[in-house]
Design a protein around this nucleic acid. Structure first.
Lengths: 346, 346
DNA sequence: TGGCGGCCTGTTAACGTCAACATGTACAGT
DNA sequence: ACTGTACATGTTGACGTTAACAGGCCGCCA
């Protein structure tokens, strides 16, 4: 497929091979292999001799050969879209750390754009990639109709229930409830909501939970303001809410939209939190320095990433197809963007 | 080292092999290889027969075997630290996209923490990794005293001049000059600066350029305010500057610090841009929605990432050690945080 | 008509590793 | 002394691919 053979010549072998070590240590290659893999039944003296030979020539096992022989690659594929988004990035970071600590390499497989074709292409690549399992960091609604390679362990980081894979994610519903109840507890009559994109499962889950919480408390449910995670959408929503005196509390589906919302409210002269309380979702690094510092729902992307790696490796090692669901509980971080409504004392 | 052999049994081969395809198409394995690699001298009819056989069994070449035999891995290692930082993330995204388009896989090698040991560990891993080259996304001052594996093409994304590798980076100096001159052009007497960490080469370069620009225009150079990229540091600096009536223009070394600065100024009742003009650096997504929208220096991380991949692949294919330097020019994005000082008309 | 070079294909061997099997030693239990 | 078991090491072959070489066919030119 286009790759041409300008190269020529066999492997310009970089390091020393098992055979080199074996020769120096005066043992067979198999014994070197045993030492390298920590197998039992190697005489301590022999092991020492081999290790010293390894050091001498700077031996590093050849991953390709090991993979070819054993079928295990010690490598995890991560399919991700939009590396730049807050959650994806943090999760990837945690995944990379956890994998590295466990001795697994990370193969990053970017989905180049949002089309089905791009997702399909990424999965297609997979057949060729040397990975033992896959973590899917793409919102699952983008996967519809795309065949995941079978026979390969998969973990999905997105709490969509419709996939038959282990799932690890933040507990969106729980977070949205925390946010909504916090505002109700402060004495607000009801809570408005700026939602994430219609198709996003996380967004839908946050929205459903917000609505459910209001209903459970017997409050009226105001119309949802549409959004798409972007600061711009939050700004738009803010402009629409600013002139409505009845609005005293808003829960935005993420922090970026909260930022846009704050700006719109400032522009229109609505004070936060005096006139309007705002709660975000994500707890991005900057949230503590919004104006005012944003009360928001903190997600533990770190735990999610590590959880995903754990679940995947467990599957790889057991060879069994699991389907448990791990939801990491978020927590509310109260800062200065929320207060009791004017004329109330909580 | 610790890996135990619970598995047992050889490769549970997932897909079909070259031999399978060869049998079905009635050709030799070598011919299949030729088709798979787009070699010349394959009869169109034969090629078609092979391709059809490939489709039939869903053949995907085995990367491990190919790598073992040819010594080429079609894979690039990316050593990165702090995935969460704005620049790193965007650059990684671009690198991943460019590499994928060129048929290279991405091997992510995280530096787990900021210590020398962690960097060393990451490089150590490298010997074992199956990569054809490395892109270093770590600020080079962290590399001091760490031996980069020799014989492996390397590209560094950080415009430190002290390394003997090809360098691709944003032109920090140019950006800082744009920012500073913009403020001077507006009529400000001088420009204050909130710097990045002392050790960071980028930060130093921005600072030096800011200072040089002021001097070139014959202005006094105010004392530098220390920072560390964090919003918190920007806030601190803001508090210190807010009470100084002489301060009418500030250039912060990144957007996050600008955000903190803005907040401090708001708190102290200094209006932006009426009383104080502020310019950031990075043009992060949210910058357009700061309050007020931030004038800042836009860096083309995308071009940097692609440039790094290009330079690396060029080295891989030529086998020659290059040492050119590519500096991608940033551009100034003027928004609402800058204006002429009070009582002036630019 | 012989020879030569461009096309097309097949055979062979090797890349570095590890599972399976084959030995072999040492020592405990009978 | 004989058997069995735990330990220790070596030999062989194969994982799937491709470089190098070896032909074979065809047409063109001298």
């Amino acid at each position: 497929m286009g790759r041409d053979s300008t190269a020529g010549g066999p492997a310009p072998r970089r390091g020393a091979s098992q055979a080199d070590v074996a020769r120096i240590a005066g043992v067979s290659g198999q014994t070197v292999s045993r030492v390298a893999n920590g197998a039992r039944y190697v005489d301590p003296a022999t092991r020492e001799r081999v290790l010293s030979a390894m050091r001498e020539v700077g031996y590093r096992p050849n991953r390709a050969a090991r993979a070819l022989r054993s079928g295990r690659f010690q490598s995890i594929g991560v399919i991700a879209f939009e590396l730049s988004s807050v959650g994806t990035t943090h999760t990837l970071d945690a995944i990379a750390a956890a994998a590295t600590e466990t001795g697994y390499a990370i193969n990053l497989l970017p989905v180049l754009d949002a089309t089905q074709d791009a997702v399909r292409a990424a999965f297609d690549q997979l057949g060729e990639q040397a990975v033992d399992g896959i973590i899917i960091l793409v919102e699952t609604h983008r996967l519809d109709g795309v065949a995941v390679p079978e026979g390969l362990p998969v973990v999905v980081v997105d709490s969509s229930a419709q996939y038959d894979y282990p799932i690890v994610d933040n507990d969106q519903a729980h977070g949205a409830r925390l946010a909504t109840e916090h505002l109700l507890d402060l004495g607000h009559e009801t809570v408005w909501h700026v939602a994430g994109p219609e198709l996003s499962y996380s967004a839908r889950r946050r929205r459903t939970s917000w609505q459910g919480t209001l209903e459970a408390h017997g409050r009226t449910v105001p119309p949802v303001l549409p959004g798409d995670w972007s600061t711009a959408a939050g700004y738009e929503a803010g402009l629409r809410l600013a002139d409505n005196e009845e609005v005293t509390a808003v829960f935005t589906a993420n922090d970026q939209m909260a930022l846009g919302l704050l700006r719109a409210l400032h522009e229109r002269g609505r004070r936060v939190p005096d006139d309007v309380s705002v709660v975000g979702f994500d707890d991005m690094e900057e949230a503590a320095y919004f104006w005012p510092p944003l009360t928001t729902v903190h997600q533990s992307f770190d735990e999610v990433g590590r959880g995903a790696v754990d679940a995947l490796i467990r599957q790889i090692q057991s060879g069994e197809h699991e389907h448990q669901e791990v939801l990491v509980p978020p927590r509310l971080v109260v800062r200065a963007s929320t207060a009791s409504p004017r004329g109330t004392t909580a």
